[in-house]
């Protein structure tokens, strides 16, 4: 078993929290993992990505080879497309529909969606609205994780446990909000 995931978005959108949740869950299942992150210059409103790899065998490269990602999980639609060279034929592209516009030449949204729909296995989720409806506008990243959880080879319960762990210091209320966001995201797709 091996799962290669690209997490993508814009600096500050919370992809490292998604990575932390998957990380805890992978550890709970005694899997090997490597997770390459972006720090520094690119965080300042630029594009950011993380390569997350876990497996029941040791993982060699910190970077995913082209064409081998099982999943691109993006919290922003244009950023989802930036990593297509990594996506495998059978891989899934799961993205938030809400654009993050901080550049003057941001492309037309319909055109973006059309490109996303060209990918055989795609799932577009209005994570911002769902997050708001579940009571925590800031949990859009966790909604996305929930939606993508169908394609992450870890028990859903492990992701829930991981959320409890990640937000432990923030108290029960925040934990519950994030668990709700995770479940609401998961309900966006039926396998």
């Amino acid at each position: 078993m091996k799962n290669d995931i690209i997490l993508s978005g814009v600096g500050g959108q919370g992809i490292l929290s998604i990575a932390a949740v998957i990380g805890y869950a992978a550890v709970e299942n005694n899997l090997y993992l490597k997770q390459a992150e972006v720090h520094g210059m690119s965080q300042r409103g630029g594009d950011v990505q993380s390569h997350f790899r876990f497996s029941d065998k040791p993982v060699a490269s910190d970077l995913i080879p082209y064409g081998e990602a099982d999943l691109i999980l993006s919290v922003e639609p244009m950023e989802a497309l930036r990593y297509l060279p990594w996506l495998s034929d059978k891989g899934w592209l799961v993205t938030n529909s809400k654009p993050f516009i901080n550049i003057p030449d941001y492309p037309d949204e319909d055109e973006l969606h059309a490109q996303i729909k060209k990918i055989k296995n795609n799932l577009i989720v209005d994570a911002d609205t769902i997050a708001k409806d579940t009571g925590s506008a800031r949990a859009a990243n966790i909604v996305m994780l929930g939606a993508a959880s169908h394609f992450i080879e870890l028990p859903f319960q492990s992701l829930q446990n991981a959320i409890r762990k990640l937000f432990a210091r923030k108290g029960d209320e925040i934990i519950d909000l994030n668990l709700k966001a995770l479940t609401a995201g998961r309900e966006q797709y039926n396998k």
Partner: peptide, 30 residues
């Protein structure tokens, strides 16, 4: 990266799809 090394070893490596033209650069900014 793994792909450059594959090539140097004479191995074929995979590739997904090209990045579509609609994707713009998103440089860091103040």
């Amino acid at each position: 990266n793994p792909n450059l090394v594959a090539k140097a070893l004479g191995l074929r490596s995979g590739y997904g799809k090209d990045i579509p033209d609609v994707v713009r650069k998103r440089p860091p900014s103040l």
